[in-house]
Write a protein that binds this DNA or RNA. Sequence first.
DNA 1: TAATCCTTTCTTTTT
DNA 2: GAAAGGATTA
Length: 721
Amino acid sequence: MDDKILSPLNDKQREAVVTTDGALLVLAGAGSGKTRVITHRFAYLLREKKIRPYNILSVTFTNKAANEMKERISKLVGYDLSNVWIRTFHSTGLMILRQNAELLDYPKDFVVYDDTDSKALITNILKELNYSKDRFNPSAILNKISSLKDDNIGVDEFRKNVYSSFDDVVVKVYEEYEKRLKKNKAFDFSDLIIVPYKLLKENEKVLIKYRELWNYIMIDEFQDTNVAQYEFVKLIAGTDPNICVVGDDDQSIYSWRGARVRNIYDFKEKYNAKVIPLEQNYRSTSIILEAANMVVEKIFDRMEKKLWTDNKGGEKIKVFEAFTDKEEAKWVIDTIDNLLVKYDYKDFAIFYRTNAQSRIFEEELLYRNIPYKVFGGQKFYSRKEIKDILAYIKFIINPDDWVSFERIIDIPKRGVGEATLTKIRRLYDEGFSLLDILTGKYELDRVNKNVLDSLKDLGEIVKELTSYKESISPANFVKILLDTIDYKSYLIKTEENGEERWENVEELINSITVYEGTKKEATIVDYISDITLQSSSDEIGNDEERNYVSLMTIHNAKGLEFPVVFIVGTVEGLIPHSSATESVEEMNEERRLFYVAITRAKERLYISYSQTRMNYGEVRECNPSSFLKDISKDELVEHISSRGSYKNNKNVYKEDVKKIPKNMNSIESYNELTTGTKIYHSSFGEGEVKFVSENIIKVNFSDFGIQMLAKNEISKIKVIR
DNA sequence: TAATCCTTTCTTTTT
DNA sequence: GAAAGGATTA
């Protein structure tokens, strides 16, 4: 027996690993060695059961988890596993679609729309159906359509259940949206699950092929599967499957995306699965674990499970109260600084509820010269210049894609505006191909000769680059593209901060080069689909010597662990989030989210909040999260604050912030101000004018120091008489 | 049509 | 405080 595989496991874990046949449900609590079980089980199947790697389908929730799993198993068995079925649901679906594109009447190189693309398509449709964007928010409609698709509800089925005028619109848009996706030869995220599902359901030959391929199935984070995913699993599993699912109802934090915890119960019943609970926690100190238990115990309908640990004692959890969010950030970074004698940068993580909260911590880290990395938060790939380039690539790969076409048609400037675009659209709607229209095969009425010429150029560029897509490395492909359209001079000439934007484009090329390093022989087509499924930026490169502080949302933190964890911005309205307090279910999910955050910590846990925070560019007051009450036990928690006295002076402080002078006048223009005028600003409070010009003024505020105010701030300013 | 300036809206979480 | 959308001017 191979020692490396079984000996590092406890009894329960070992049982889960050697139970290879039939249906198995592993209820894996936080930090109970779940990843270890999955990887060792995979290795056990290979080594002891002599199963071939590609006969095992292993589904994880994130690309990151998939990559990590591959690496770990490779280490266990001693050979490379880069081409096995260890994938996310979405990338599994994508693989099936690529392998069967012709059956679906799609080209092999179809594109995948991310949410921005889908939203652009929906905006288009709304316009054409004459619905005003103001009344029908494209995002809201996309959300609705996505959740319908995630619930495996098609247009026709939904149509039967429409009772509101909003849903009425949704039906119409949904129907058109599906048609357009097809016409554009594109799939959206949800399609990556439901289209393969439909394909396998309607095509027995294909179904049998995959059933025969995947003799063993493993699915991680089962509590986060949605209806469509579970349907897909049941379909490929067949009647008597060897299937192992791993989940933890306490860590279900994606129900807003259609995830159903009850898939776990249903699985257990349907397949009469053997259940193995993993309750011993190897990660955290008993103090941290006890606090976590206190948070989650308040939820009634959980599956019975109580985590325990041998790791007695530990540091108390420190809860810090700050005046302002700025001060909170300072304290967090100070604390990190002080702990550097014991820990490395990489041992620290800062968790927050919303991506927008990262900024203030980044500023502080930058200021202190502490290396850090922000995970997730699609910032980089949602930058205009990056999206432009990606849209170019998408359009070149797939010239039926109207959404990408519309994005790039006037980049660089070709003199194509609303009018010309409408003319192109008309031809396109009649069924002519965009490439033919561009190259002048059909006449565009009353369009300037120069414009026609540059359209023709674009058509030629696309044709030329298409011929390279298989033969050239992704980075070179992009370099040629950038050269051909002379993107650099376009950016620098016409865009604000052109230089900076060009640096971002160079950064993109760098990241593609890194990507090539990890995935030899990848083409530009591979790159673009990988990047679409992976937009949360990282993990393309292997960060060998990662030594930095990690910043991420709590959602992104799931599955990870750090010696020292900071949970920041722990105020009512953020966690629990203000938009999730209406129902018990929503509140419970917020509670579980807090639980997930706590259980990431191995040795030390710090929780912080502030009395005021910048929100929408205004200072707002806030209260500590109600979840904090649940762990406020003296044995577990130590409460601290930077100025010991202010707790007793809370009211004074609040008055300071809120104090609004009585005698004030609004002003029409900055001309009415002179140096020395006392003013009140709705965000910054009181201050004295130091400098006046026509469009800006500089003001020295008593609480915020010197601030420069642009013209549009004028409505926020009043003069104190 | 393009560029600029100003106003409005927005933030939950992500494959 | 950013980003997108809208209005205004060239």
